[in-house]
């Protein structure tokens, strides 16, 4: 059976003030039914943009190539009406910043029920009942009253949970959670993660979990994708990624040396910053910051190539490292 979501060679170019800006290059990944997959990378590497592409919400003038198949349907060629069927009911999204993503002048209940009624065909009563259930499910106290509240009356953690409830309302098959825990403190983060995992286990919900913090992925996701400058630079089972990173960038993110012999936790900041869109050097985009760079890194961006069981790495020096390990 093919995976629920299959993204293949996705490339996105946005219009910029001085010309087109290539943002995503050759991005491929899959999310299986009932699977939780992690997507990690520094700020600005294109994680949110990937999510927006999968919902057809790119800004006007964006150019997209490649393919993204969801449950057998090619998303990238959908018309507006079909997109509306997929959004919310097929793929739902939890936005990065819950405060900004909730309408300040509509009650939480209204924001929970409006798409439920469109997608599930529920009448008002049934939708209201389900709204209360959902808020209860995400552990918002006194859900009967919470449905009538406006977002500004919630605390940050509650807003985030309300946003998750809204995303789940129309029973999507895939949830894209864009850094749903960034604004929250550690205990709340853990709760949200547990909630997502439970939903996955109970309802078969597939989750693409976006984060800039590799550590968050550890317990819950089966596989992880590491993004850098609009490319996937490493992928593999989460455990292996975290304990034995092969790409120098993944390793640097973890504060460890490649091949993961050193303890995670000696976090050192990576010198420099990721290149701005369109400013990447000709070869490997990580080259200016990479401690393992060789002359051969500077010609073409290394493609993602298999490296061991279920793993792939986009680094030309990787074979040497493996030998070293």
């Amino acid at each position: 059976m093919p995976p629920l979501l299959e993204v293949d060679s996705l490339a996105v170019t946005l219009p910029g003030p001085t010309g087109p800006l290539p943002i995503l290059h050759d991005v491929s990944f899959t999310v299986g039914e009932g699977e939780m997959v992690g997507i990690a990378g520094e700020s600005g590497c294109g994680k949110s943009l990937t999510a927006q592409t999968l919902l057809g919400l790119l800004p006007a003038g964006a150019k997209v190539t490649g393919s993204a198949r969801f449950a057998g349907t090619e998303l990238l060629s959908l018309d507006t009406r079909r997109w509306q069927k997929v959004r919310g009911a097929g793929i739902a999204m939890v936005f990065q910043d819950p405060t900004a993503a909730l309408h300040p002048m509509l009650t939480v209940g209204r924001q929970l029920t409006e798409h439920m009624r469109v997608h599930l065909g529920l009448d008002r009563r049934a939708a209201d009942r389900r709204a209360v259930e959902l808020l209860d499910q995400v552990r918002i106290p006194d859900p009967q009253r919470a449905v009538r509240a406006y977002p500004h009356q919630f605390s940050g953690g509650m807003r985030q949970r309300a946003a998750i409830a809204i995303a789940l309302a129309a029973r999507p098959r895939l949830l894209i959670a864009d850094e749903p825990t960034t604004a929250l403190d550690v205990t709340v983060q853990a709760g949200i993660l547990a909630l997502l995992d439970q939903l996955r286990a109970e309802t078969g919900l597939a989750v693409a979990f976006i984060t800039h913090d590799l550590g968050v992925l550890s317990a819950l996701t089966t596989r992880g994708y590491v993004f850098y400058a609009g490319r996937v630079v490493e992928t593999g089972p989460t455990g292996a990624l975290l304990t034995a990173p092969r790409h120098p960038y993944t390793a640097a993110l973890l504060g460890a040396r490649p091949h993961g012999t050193q303890a995670v936790g000696t976090l050192r900041p990576i010198p420099g910053g990721p290149p701005a869109p369109g400013q990447a050097p000709p070869g490997c985009p990580f080259q200016p910051r990479c401690g393992y760079a060789e002359p051969s890194c500077g010609t073409v961006p290394p493609p993602l190539s298999p490296a061991g069981t279920d793993r792939s790495v986009a680094c030309v020096v990787r074979p040497h490292l493996e030998v070293a390990a």
Binding site: Q137, G156, V188
Partner: peptide, 24 residues
């Protein structure tokens, strides 16, 4: 049922700050 406890505390001010900066 799920096992999520109600928010014990407000959002981490540092995290919110970082978020605001990123939004800007």
């Amino acid at each position: 049922m799920t096992t999520l406890a109600p928010d014990p505390v407000a959002p981490d001010p540092k995290a919110t700050d970082a978020l605001a900066r990123r939004r800007l």
